[in-house]
């Protein structure tokens, strides 16, 4: 990865952190409703993997912890934040919410709230790619606890027998809400579970964006070259509670401290400073610019956007004027 790319990634990850922390504030101010799951601490996962993908061409799908995957996939942070604000200018016109961010023109195929739900959808997208003869792949990001759903096993099995171009990325943050992985899961190393389906897999440090990027390159090459599915496990940690309604009381402070020393943004920053590529001041300036950008553009846009109009309420339930409902075009 060249220096320019590293600097850009530093800025993108810092933007992601500030974006999520600003969501936190907006939630406390009751500007954002419902469930809100933040990605702080896990930035290197989405950024490292998608840096190695063909953004806008490869399909991306994930769970409810989806803001940052959406933005890294090319979506405008304004339309993401406006969606959280439930405004008509939001990507889903205020009908989706935090857990259902969609940006289909960027091939960001959505955030889904049912744990494990995207596993088979990703396999299906890969099946569609294969049928249409494209060179794209599908990348599916899910949590560690999702692997205890039947869909995990069903989808890995189908992806393997049908040789589908899908990369499953497990963001292993050690918890499913408040239950630590060793209390819920017989085999805690998730990459090992995949060997039962004869799918190649790897576990790497999910806090180091360069490590993630290198592992993702290898994984994506495998999938894109027609060799079938791949499973990448990224060891990571979320700083906030599971969602805004989570007190986070189940985690030892020591554990949190250990992980905070491996912050993906700080690690990259320090590396760039040490190499003389940026100064502390550059970083501070970058941070200020980002904070200003979020406030003056993203938040302002969301605050000032209109509420969805009432005629949206019943609009997208069924297809509009579909001739086949009435026996075909007349």
């Amino acid at each position: 990865m060249d220096v320019a790319a590293k600097k850009r990634l530093l800025r993108e990850m810092l933007f992601a952190r500030r974006f999520e922390e600003r969501c936190y504030e907006a939630y406390v101010e009751r500007k954002i409703g419902g469930f809100l799951h933040l990605y702080s601490g896990e930035e290197a996962c989405a950024h490292g993997v998608l840096e190695a993908a063909n953004i806008g061409s490869d399909y991306v799908i994930t769970s409810y912890r989806d803001h940052i995957h959406a933005i890294k996939s090319g979506m405008d942070p304004k339309e993401v934040m406006a969606e959280l604000y439930a405004k008509e200018t939001g990507c889903c016109k205020g009908l989706g919410g935090s857990m259902h961010i969609f940006g289909v023109e960027h091939r960001f195929m959505g955030g889904y709230a049912l744990v494990g739900g995207p596993f088979p959808l990703a396999a299906g997208l890969a099946k569609g790619i294969k049928m249409k003869g494209g060179s794209e792949i599908c990348i599916c990001f899910l949590g560690d606890a999702a692997n205890n759903q039947g869909t995990f096993h069903e989808s890995l099995n189908m992806a393997k027998i049908w040789n589908l171009p899908v990369l499953y990325v497990c963001e292993n943050n050690l918890y499913g809400i408040g239950t630590r992985i060793d209390r819920s899961t017989a085999v805690v190393d998730q990459y090992k579970r995949v060997s039962g389906y004869d799918i190649p897999s790897e576990q790497v440090d999910g806090q180091d964006v360069e490590v993630v990027y290198a592992a993702a390159q290898k994984a994506i090459n495998h999938v894109r070259s027609g060799k079938g599915p791949y499973f990448l496990e990224l060891m990571t940690y979320r700083y906030r509670g599971h969602s805004m309604s989570d007190s986070n009381a189940y985690r030892a402070k020591d554990e949190e401290r250990v992980w905070s020393k491996r912050d993906p943004i700080i690690m990259l920053r320090d590396r760039l400073v040490e190499a003389g590529e940026i100064t502390e001041d550059d970083y501070k300036k970058m941070d200020d610019e980002i904070l200003e950008d979020i406030e003056n553009n993203v938040i302002k846009f969301s605050e000032e956007s209109p509420e969805p109009s009432m005629d949206l309420l019943e609009k997208y339930v069924l297809a509009e004027n579909d001739p086949w409902v009435h026996g075909g075009p007349k």
Binding site: K127, G128, M131, K132, T151, E154, N157, W162
Partner: peptide, 26 residues
Amino acid sequence: PERVIDTPISENGFTGLAIGASFIGV
């Protein structure tokens, strides 16, 4: 076999797969 597919006995899985494929024109 690419178009007439014998599935494993995974109803939620293969139904979900079909739904995912339908997102992009299948």
